[in-house]
Simulated scan of single mutants.
Amino acid sequence: MTIVVVAPERVKKLQNQYPWLYADEIAEIRGDAHAGELVEIRDARGDFIARAFFSPTSHIAARIITYDASEKINRAFFERRFEQALARRVHAIVNTNALRLVHGEADQLPGLVVDRFADTLVVQFRNAGVENFRKEILQALKKIFPAQGAYERSDTQARREEGLELRVGVLYGDVPNEISIFEDDVEFFVNPLAGQKTGFYLDQRDNRRLLRTMVMGSDAAQPSRVLDVFSYTGAFSLHAAKAGAHALAVDKDQVALQQLEANARRNNLSERVGARWGDAEKVLAQLVQERRSFSHIVLDPPTLAKHKNEVPPAKQLFTRLTTDALRLLEPNGILFLSTCAYHISVNDLIEVSRIAAGDVSRRASVITVTYQPADHPWILQIPETLYLKTLVLRVE
């Protein structure tokens, strides 16, 4: 097995459970490993640190899979990892039949993502390492996570960066074109074959529930009016409407908005859920011109900064979006401002909100800051596993 020797100043980081070894942290490579092959990571004295998937063309040259020198990487290994992942989620995720079962490095399985939607699994093999163990992984999935079928959505940029072809299709069993899932008392149709990511944004589950506790229903003197920006299939809108609010969903994906309308009909909420197609920034400006107002606004854009150098323009866009959102928010209204970008911090969201509030002369107070739910674990030693941050504000 090829040996990768770590630069002395980087040894402690790996020993402290950080799973990535960058190319510029390698002192020496003894052998000729190819993409996805297992390598041993050692220090300059030859002491074993970990075993990892090797990636010669990536800036992340090795992704640690085990710290146990005696542990064999085979079907039994993946079964143990899946059992451990399942144990982390027992009793933590309730009142839904849709959750993330495996979350890559956070579950000590770098590059592997598995979501459950009712009786269907949706799987992503994101790097050459897990690709090389595809057979063993699928065997372990069938045993630990029994399902009617499994569908592959390995159509990520990460695969391109490793020189892997994109793969989409049925892995095994029967996979319906649409899957019915529930989240509390709201039902959704999910399309894993053509939807974004794996078909549904499971990581906003807790925030949808939080919004629902804050809206006023039809029994109130004035029911809440919710603006759901970057709505995708409108999960925030549907939860709010189920609680009696009126919601307007905004997205540039027409297919997603059609799915929202179908989900609204399924939940008998069509009278309380509307949709507007278009670019979010332009639609917000139009709503300002129309003198619309809302009691609750959700801004949940896609990843705007995949790299650190993209943060400044992302913050500028966030500021423009937030400024117009505050123009639409009625006095004492609630704003949810979310980012799914690791490189954008809570402090960045606070700065954006402070600038936007100043631009429209509004006073804002922080109600809470939330993070991703328990089925998307945040590992203390792996800062990159904290990606979803949401700032919840009350604006006077």
Results as ranks from 00 to 15, higher is better:
A35M: 15
E330T: 08
V250S: 01
R209S: 10
A305D: 05
G173F: 01
Q196P: 02
T233D: 04
R225K: 15
Y151D: 09
V123S: 09
Y18K: 13
Q316L: 12
I26R: 07
E83D: 10
A220L: 11
E83S: 15
M214A: 14
P8A: 05
A305R: 00
E183Y: 08
Q15R: 12
P373T: 07
L86T: 09
N127K: 14
Q316Y: 05
V94L: 13
E28Q: 15
S224D: 09
E79L: 02
Q316M: 09
P56L: 09
K315R: 12
T198R: 00
R10T: 09
A87G: 08
T319D: 03
S58V: 11
S154G: 12
F82R: 07
Y151Q: 10
I93G: 03
P8Q: 00
R116G: 06
N207D: 08
S361H: 13
T322D: 02
V4L: 13
R42K: 15
Q15S: 09
R209F: 10
K142T: 11
V395N: 06
A147V: 08
Q148L: 13
D251G: 00
T385K: 03
A325H: 00
S237M: 05
T57S: 12
E25C: 11
P383I: 00
M216Y: 15
L21C: 05
A128H: 03
I60G: 07
V11R: 02
R208K: 11
R291V: 14
E9A: 12
R363T: 13
I137H: 08
I73Q: 08
D348F: 00
A150N: 13
Y172Q: 03
T368V: 09
R292G: 04
I355L: 12
L329F: 04
D119P: 06
A280V: 04
Q286A: 12
I60C: 10
D324L: 11
E310T: 04
H103E: 05
R354N: 15
D107R: 06
Q157R: 15
I49N: 08
I382P: 00
G274I: 00
S55P: 02
Q381Y: 08
H246F: 13
I41P: 00
F117C: 01
F188W: 08
R205V: 02
I41W: 09
E105I: 11
D203H: 01
Q108F: 10
K389M: 04
N207P: 01
P56C: 13
F230S: 01
P373M: 08
A87Y: 11
E71L: 14
E136V: 06
A262L: 06
I355D: 02
V392R: 07
K142M: 14
Q108Y: 10
H307Y: 13
E105K: 14
A356W: 06
F117K: 02
G358R: 13
Q254N: 10
R126F: 11
T385E: 03
E396Y: 12
E152D: 10
A61M: 04
V298Y: 00
F133Q: 01
R205Y: 14
E384P: 06
A245C: 12
E290P: 05
R225A: 15
L380F: 07
F133H: 14
D107E: 03
L227M: 11
F48G: 02
G46N: 10
T323K: 07
V114D: 05
S218V: 10
A243W: 06
Q157P: 11
E396S: 14
A87I: 10
D228N: 08
S237P: 05
R394K: 15
E178G: 09
T233C: 05
L337Q: 07
E40S: 15
L141N: 03
A275Y: 03
